[in-house]
Structures are given as structure tokens and as C-alpha cells.
């Protein structure tokens, strides 16, 4: 899966977790831009991403990825290691 495909899949998951179909998901989007992206929703998002892509995020990634792009970087990193 390339970066663009992963981002598209991520977008679906974000819309589900934040319960907003109209969200436009870009790499720049951050917790500050989305009303429902609070710390609980963040954990829910991380969990859904982990399950969907079959990876386990480290504590540091969980704590420090506050932008979609950060999460995408972390995901791509995990995915490249498992291939």
C-alpha cells in the first residue's frame, strides 16, 4: 500500500471516529482543527488505525502524533518494517 492509499483508508476511519462525514482529511489536519478530536477520540483513532493496519503504535507515537501527517508517518514506518 502506498502513502496515498493509506491516507485514503485513514480518512474513512477518521470520519467514522469523529462522526463527521464532511471532514476533509489532509496531512496538515491536527487535533486543534477538529472539534471532536479530544484525548479520548485520539485513543479511539489510534486503536482503530492499529487494528485496521495490524500495527501497534508505541507510547511515544500515541503521545506525540497530533497531526494526521504524523500518524501517517508512523503508520508507513510500521508498515515498511512488516513487509
Amino acid at each position: 500500500m502506498n502513502r496515498k492509499e493509506v491516507l485514503e483508508k485513514m480518512a474513512e476511519i477518521c470520519k467514522d471516529v469523529f462522526e463527521d462525514e464532511s471532514l476533509i482529511i489532509t496531512e496538515e489536519l491536527s487535533a486543534a482543527d477538529v472539534e471532536d478530536w479530544d484525548s479520548l477520540a485520539h485513543m479511539s483513532l489510534v486503536n482503530e488505525l492499529g487494528k485496521t493496519f495490524g500495527v501497534t503504535f508505541t507510547l511515544e507515537e500515541v503521545a506525540e502524533c497530533t497531526r494526521i501527517g504524523d500518524l501517517l508517518d508512523a503508520l508507513m514506518n510500521h508498515l515498511s518494517l512488516t513487509q
Partner: peptide
Amino acid sequence: DAALYYHAKMSVSMD
């Protein structure tokens, strides 16, 4: 889920 516990103080995984 260690990350969940240390980041959010939740002691049972979401699964």
C-alpha cells in the same frame, strides 16, 4: 494495552 494505560490511564484494552 500498555500505550493506552500510560497515555490515558486506562487499564483494559479497547478490544
